[in-house]
């Protein structure tokens, strides 16, 4: 495992994460402007879906790379937050799934589990900052 230290890891993270977020927003705006559900050919819509996912995959990779390269305490906090976010979203997925199976609620787009994961990750990461020993 290549540990580079907090400063270098943070720089490398920002250098990849923020351009990818900017690209993601640009693609979302472009898709909103260019894609029409009824008239745009399927292959273009599929292309936009893949293209919009790509910067998110790169951003997630940036998070994992930073966790690998940063100092040990930050890494421990990040790993714990990633695991807790996964557990929370898994529980949420089961709950929503059963609510749908038992016809309590209608269909919810799977997409929203992604943002839910990142919100849970952020909250868990900052809670661990004040919390007990990692």
């Amino acid at each position: 495992m290549a540990t580079l230290g907090f400063r270098t890891a943070n720089k490398r993270y920002k250098r990849l994460f923020w351009p990818m977020m900017a690209l993601y927003v640009a693609l979302i705006l472009a898709a909103k402007w260019l894609v029409d559900e009824d008239t745009t050919p399927l292959w273009i819509r599929a292309g936009f879906a893949v293209a919009t996912t790509a910067p998110l995959v790169a951003a997630i990779w940036a998070i994992l790379r930073q966790a690998r390269e940063t100092d040990e305490y930050t890494r421990a906090r990040q790993m714990r937050a990633l695991a807790e976010a996964g557990a929370i979203v898994a529980c949420g997925t089961f709950l929503v799934g059963f609510l749908q199976i038992f016809a309590v609620i209608g269909t919810i787009e799977v997409f929203w589990f992604g943002p839910a994961y990142f919100i849970a990750f952020g909250l868990s990461y900052y809670r661990n900052c004040m919390g007990p020993t990692v």
Partner: peptide, 13 residues
Amino acid sequence: ADRLDVSRQSVNA
């Protein structure tokens, strides 16, 4: 934290 190349939170913890 700068001298150790860790985060300030690490030093605090």
